[in-house]
Structures are given as structure tokens and as C-alpha cells.
Write a protein that binds this DNA or RNA. Structure first.
Lengths: 244, 244
DNA sequence: TGACATATGCGTATGTCGCACATAAGTAAA
DNA sequence: TTTACTTATGTGCGACATACGCATATGTCA
């Protein structure tokens, strides 16, 4: 039997198969706090609880395409930094039936995050409180305004937690922080991102040196406007070689 | 409609769904070279080419369970360091039908690697040649003995490449190197692992200090035997807190 | 001219590097 | 049985690079 004949006779329905979904962790740093966008579920299961936006993977689209489609549909948003995080496959993670979920996270600058929030009324902004230092890992809390910590549907709490861990791990290593900033930004704004995500105070001169020595930043010559004091220089991110 | 009623009426067969598979990257360091175990495919597609051992995910098992089952079945092996790597979901990655594959990698000490190889005759040992420095990423070559680079089925070449990248990235950061060593080992053996995976020469005294200062190593008081010169002290890995 | 945040200079601490040397066991010759 | 030799492990120490943090200079607006 040659390959073509084999393909013809292959029966993809022979075994019972799980469904595959994508869940999106839409993150930003808003007013110095790491934040995500959540939806309130109106359907079973977990009706009334908060969940990550997500959807099933179509038979004709790749995982990445599914993530971008959901990003566009739920957050009216294309062109963001999107990265696959982890695949969650516990048997009972969804009470309906067997659903494997591939978690992606997307990073947005605060202004585009606010725009997504405004144009998608079913989304709510939740601030994250990380209860562990460094990359230890562990549970985190999400709350809307100054309310109580939210109860998250499915294993979405674990997804959030892992996203923060990954973010902390890659922050100083890759250019991921710049996905959270507008195209032109001050060193102070960059430091604010670092401090929000790592939940630490950083020394300003030392931070400045480290960033400039890295060679990723390009001075634009332009300066901040609107400040009642010395305006800071605006920088631009110049991708390192080998970076996407 | 309450939740129970909803669950009863949910129809999981409503949409066409992809199949989900797990592929295993069984790695070790053998004679100073990073190596993997491959199988020669005897079925279509890609019959005659080399592939990673893998299998479909059962409807009643989690992804991790599937990975361990395949590890036990193909390599006669349980109790190894196993970690999920990435999920590959391109539409055309398998010509049969839509198959999403979750790649896992497993790390084994050289002696147990050899045992797996002996007890599983369909597996072959392939040495890896990494063509890029550091964590740049890019293609890698796998060859059996001193033959030509193998042609790998599906996107298994990309899986291998990503596994090496992850391994390099986590090596100095986590206790992952100890999964490639027997329970008791010399500092020299540990350094050999580092040099094989990073493909660099390391300074011995500096390496020694770094490792001991890290607090992960526990001297056993025992010494290597069989050497015709000063025997090295045997150390044991003491897991850091927060590490699995 | 004062207020304020950005930006820089400089001494210090910390950690790593790498060479040189001391140490220990086994081997072989005296 | 003693002694010297071989070889790789293990340590001492100075050089170097990097990062830290304080103090100070700079620049713009009110």
C-alpha cells in the first residue's frame, strides 16, 4: 500500500477525540498594576463566574490562527504580541466533556488595552495581585476595582498564574517589556513596567545603565511633553537580532 | 436550565475536531554528546523516515498521563524527568488528517538511556549537532553513528530544536542537569553535562565554585572508585525549595 | 529664581574568571 | 616495603567586569 492509498483508507473517526480550545490571557500594565481582561460567563458551566476569553479551534485553522481570531473577535484587536503559554489537559478540567485548552497570552500597551475594553463591553479589567516573590509560582488574585478576589472558572486561575511566571521570567531576558509600551516611551515608563511586573523597587541610575548598555534602545531626540519639569527623552525599541 | 440539564444536552460531536497526540523527546548526554531516541516509521505517512516516539491522547487520560504512558510503552521506562515543551498545531503538519501534537521532553541519565535502548529494539540512538550558539535557535542535525544527518518526519525536527533551546535556557537556572546524572555524581561529571549541552568549554575552578555556592549539592563523603588517580568526591542533588 | 524629575560621575561591593599551586590516590620501579 | 611519578581533584589569590547607590549636575516649566 503506497502513501496515497493509505491516506485514503485512514479513518480519523475511529477513536473518540477530545475537543481543543484556545484561551487568551490579555495582559497589560495599567496604572502600575499588572492587569487582565476577563469575561463573565453567561452559559454553563460556571455561569456567573469569571473566565478568560477563549474559543474552540476550528478544523481548518492552526493554533496560532485560532488565538489571533479570538483576539480579534473578543478584543477587537489585531497586531499584538502573542505567545503560546502552555497546554492544559486534565481530564476533568471542563465538566461538559473532554476539552484540552492551549493557553496563549497577549501583551498590549495600556492605551490599546483601554481601547479594547471600551469597544468590547463584555470584557472587564481585573488587577492582579501576585502573592509570591520572583518566579516561585503559586496562586494569584484577580479583582475588579477594589472588590474581593474573583472566583475564576475552569483552571483559568492556574493559567493566569503561569502567565505571570512566564512574564517575570522573560522580562529581563527578552524584549517582552516593550510590547507593553507605546512605540516611543521614556526610560521612566520602562522602569514602571519592570517594577509593576516584578513587584519590586529598582534603582533608577542602575536601571538606566543596564537598559542603555543592552543596545536595544534608540534615542529619538524627541522629548516628553506636558510635564511641568524637565521632560524625559523618548526612546524607541530596536529589535535585537534573532528576535521576532 | 440548570447546570446539570445543560451538561446533559451538550453535544460534543457538533463540530469536527482535530486529533490530539503526544510526541516524546527522550534525551540524554551520551559520551559527551546530547542524544535522542528515535523510531523508524514503518507506516504511512513518512514511512522509512525517522520520528519521535508518540501516540494519541486517550479520551480518559490527561496529557501528562499520555506522555508517561508512551514513555513506559516505548522506552520501558517510568520515573524520569518529564516536562511539557510546546504544542504544535499547524493545519498541514500531518498529511493524514488534522492532528495537534503536544511535545514533551524526558531527561534520562546515560545508563538508563542505554537500558531503554537495549530493551526497546525499535528505538535508535541519534546524536545531535546543534548548529547555533547559545539560545539563538535554528535547525539542528541528528545522526546515527557517523552517518549523514537524518531526515525527520512531520515537524519533529522543529520539536528537537525547541527542546535543545529549552534545555539550554533552563540548564543553569534550574536543577534540570541533575536529571541527566545518576543519583551520586562527581563535579566533573556535572561539568561534562553542562559542556555537552551548552557546547562550550568551562573553567573548572569557576564552575566548581558556582555550583557549590548555589547550595544544591550535598557532599556524600564517598569517593569515586576505579580511577588510577585521585578519586573525586561524590555529590548528591538536594532539591531547592519550590522545585519539584 | 525655585521646584522637580531627568540624567551623569564616581567610589564601592559583589561575583566571576583563570592561572598557579597544593593534595591525594594508584602505579610502578628501586 | 619504600619512594618517586603520574594524573586529575580541589584551593588560594589577584585581576577583571558588572552592578549598586549615593551625590551631583542638567534642563524645563512656573
Amino acid at each position: 500500500m503506497d502513501e496515497a492509498a493509505f491516506l485514503e483508507s485512514y479513518d480519523p473517526t475511529a477513536y473518540e477525540r477530545p475537543s481543543v480550545a484556545v484561551d487568551l490571557i490579555l495582559m497589560s500594565v495599567v496604572d502600575g498594576a499588572p492587569s487582565v481582561l476577563l469575561t463573565r460567563r453567561d452559559q454553563h458551566p460556571f455561569a456567573g463566574e469569571w473566565a478568560l476569553p477563549g474559543g474552540f479551534v476550528g478544523i481548518g485553522e492552526s493554533l496560532d490562527e485560532a488565538a489571533l481570531r479570538i483576539l480579534a473577535a473578543k478584543a477587537r484587536m489585531s497586531d499584538a504580541y502573542v505567545e503560546q503559554l502552555y497546554t492544559f489537559g486534565a481530564v476533568d478540567r471542563d465538566p461538559r466533556t473532554r476539552i484540552i485548552s492551549v493557553a496563549y497570552f497577549a501583551l498590549l500597551p495600556a492605551d490599546r488595552f483601554a481601547a479594547a475594553l471600551k469597544s468590547a463591553p463584555e470584557l472587564a479589567l481585573a488587577e492582579l495581585t501576585v502573592l509570591w516573590p520572583g518566579e516561585t509560582g503559586g496562586p494569584i488574585e484577580a479583582r475588579i476595582g477594589d472588590g474581593d478576589p474573583l472566583q475564576l472558572a475552569f483552571d483559568h486561575g492556574a493559567m493566569l498564574s503561569l502567565a505571570v511566571r512566564r512574564l517575570r521570567g522573560k522580562l529581563d531576558y527578552s524584549g517582552i517589556a516593550f510590547a507593553l509600551l507605546p512605540q516611543r516611551f521614556t526610560l521612566r515608563a520602562l522602569q514602571d513596567i519592570y517594577e509593576a511586573i516584578l513587584d519590586t523597587k529598582l534603582n533608577k541610575p542602575a536601571f538606566r545603565r543596564r537598559m542603555l548598555d543592552r543596545g536595544w534602545l534608540e534615542a529619538t531626540g524627541e522629548r516628553e511633553t506636558g510635564a511641568s519639569f524637565r521632560p524625559a527623552e523618548l526612546y524607541r525599541y530596536r529589535k535585537a537580532e534573532g528576535e521576532q
